[in-house]
Design a protein around this nucleic acid. Structure first.
Lengths: 247, 247
DNA sequence: AATGATATGGGAGGAAAGCTCAGGTAACAC
DNA sequence: GTGTTACCTGAGCTTTCCTCCCATATCATT
C-alpha cells in the first residue's frame, strides 16, 4: 500500500536531544531513542526479527507497524518507543543485513588471492553469499525497494544497497587488477560490474528455486562466471584481449 | 476474476494475452466499464500514460489515484469511471507492457534460427529488449513488485511478469533444443533460465547506467552470453553442426 | 434541436494505517 | 525501601488515500 509519511509533528515536549557528544554516526536517525537496558536491546532485536518474518512471509507492504508489533508479541507503542516511524524499522533491518553482508565480503576477499585458481576464487565469494540468502529470506525483499522515493527514510534501504553493491564492485575491481594488471581500467570495472550484477541476479533467482534446483543453479553460476572471467583474468599467453597493442 | 492466468505457454501458437478483439473475457475484471467513445478510449490511454510517468518519476507507491489523475489532467472520478480501483490502473499498464513485450519476443525468435550464427542470434534477441527498456522507463518498476501480496489485483503485475518470463524461458528452451538436440533437457532448461535471468539483470542495470556506458554494457552482455552458451550450443568436438537432415 | 447516453469533476464518506499519550510496570542505584 | 529512570501498553486521535456519488457538461443520434 502506498505509505506516505507525514512530516511527523515532532513536537515532543523535550526529547533528550543531542545534549552532547555523539559517537554514533548514521544510526542516529534510525532510532528515536536508543535502548539503554538489555531489555530494550532485546526488544529492538525482537522487533527486527519480527519485521524480517513478516516481510519474508507477506512482503514489504504487509509489514505495517501493527503487523510487526503483533508478530513480535508486543504493543505498537513499544515500536514507537525506539523507532520514529515504520520505515525506520525496515531501515534498521536493512542496516543489520548490510552489516552482516559487509562482514561476508570482508572474509570472502582474501589478501592472498594471487595463488588461488580462478575457480577456487569464485567459489570462495559465491558460496557464502548463497548461504546468506538462504539464511535470510527477507533480505531480497528489503532491498528490492527501488531507488527513487523522494522520502529520506523510505529510500534508506535502496541507498544502502547501492552503497553495498558499489563497494562490492570496488573489491572485485581491485581483485581483478591484481590478477591481471594489463587489463584496462574501464574494461576491468565493467567486468566487475557485470559479474556483480549477474551474481546477484542468479542468487536471487536461486533463492526462489526449488530445493532440488539450488545446487545445480549455483554450479551453473560458477561456470558462467568462470567462462566469462577466464579470458579477462587468465589471458592466453601473449595476448591481451583489448584493442590496444595486440602484438 | 482479475487477469487471466495461463501458465505453460510452451508452443508458439498460443498467444493468449489480451488483444483488443476479445470483447470482455479477461479485461472484464480490469475495467469497470469499457470506454465506448473515442473520448473515453483516449482518456484511458492518457491515464495509463500518466501512471507510467508518475511511476517512472517517483516510484510505484507514489502512483496514487489522485496523483495519476492529476498528471493526466483529469479527475479522480474519471479514473473510477473506467477502473475499479487504483491497482487496476497499474495492472492495465502492466498488461500494455506485457503485450508489447510479447510482440517483441515473437519477432525476436525467428523460425529459421538454424542458419544463424550464435552471435547474430543473441543480437537479435538482446537488442530489441534493450530498446524496449529505453523506451519505457517505468517498465522495470511496474514489474518490480514482489510475488507475495495476498491481494489479487495487487499481485497481477507480478503474475504477469512471471508468465512473461516463463514464456521467454520456454522460447529459449525450444531454441536451444533445436540448435543442439543432444543437450539434456534439464541442463538445457537451466541454461535457458540462467540466460534469461542474466539478460534481464544486465539490461536492468544498463537502463540505470550513464548514456556513455549503455553501449559497452550491451556489448559485454553479448559477450557474456556468447561465452556461456557457446560450449552448450556449439559443442567443440563430435558435434552435429547440422541445419537440417541430422542424419 | 431535442433527448437520452456517456463523460467529467470535486467533494463526502470511510477504512486502514500511522502515530501519540497518559498511565502503568520493571530495572537499577543508593 | 525509596527514588529515578527506562520501558511497556493499548485505546484512540490523525492522516492519507481509496471509493462512491451526483450535479453538470459533452456527445451522438434522430
Amino acid at each position: 500500500m502506498p505509505v506516505k509519511i507525514t512530516a511527523a509533528p515532532t513536537t515532543p515536549a523535550d526529547t533528550d536531544l543531542p545534549s552532547s557528544d555523539e559517537p554514533k554516526a548514521h544510526q542516529d536517525g534510525a532510532f528515536r531513542r536508543r535502548p539503554r537496558q538489555s531489555r530494550g536491546h532485546s526488544r529492538v532485536e525482537l522487533l527486527l526479527d519480527a519485521a524480517a518474518d513478516v516481510i519474508a512471509d507477506s512482503g514489504l507492504d504487509a509489514a505495517t507497524a501493527e503487523a510487526i508489533a503483533l508478530r513480535a508479541k508486543t504493543a505498537k507503542g513499544s515500536l514507537y518507543q525506539f523507532f520514529p516511524n515504520r520505515d525506520a524499522v525496515v531501515a534498521a533491518l536493512a542496516l543489520r543485513y548490510a552489516d552482516e553482508m559487509r562482514q561476508i565480503h570482508e572474509k570472502a576477499f582474501p589478501m592472498d588471492s594471487q595463488g588461488l585458481a580462478l575457480e577456487r576464487l569464485i567459489d570462495r565469494i559465491v558460496k557464502p553469499l548463497a548461504d546468506f540468502h538462504d539464511r535470510n529470506p527477507a533480505f531480497r525483499r528489503v532491498f528490492a525497494t527501488v531507488e527513487s522515493s523522494a522520502d529520506d527514510m523510505r529510500a534508506a534501504p535502496a541507498r544502502l544497497r547501492a552503497q553495498l553493491f558499489e563497494s562490492f564492485v570496488d573489491r572485485l575491481d581491485v581483485l581483478f587488477a591484481s590478477r591481471n594488471p594489463r587489463l584496462p581500467a574501464r574494461e576491468r570495472r565493467r567486468a566487475a560490474l557485470i559479474s556483480a550484477t549477474v551474481g546477484q541476479a542468479v542468487l536471487a533467482r536461486r533463492s526462489r528455486a526449488s530445493a532440488a534446483e539450488k545446487k545445480p543453479l549455483l554450479a551453473e553460476l560458477r561456470r558462467l562466471l568462470l567462462t566469462y572471467l577466464k579470458p579477462l583474468l587468465d589471458p592466453p599467453v601473449g595476448t591481451i584481449r583489448t584493442s590496444r597493442a595486440p602484438r
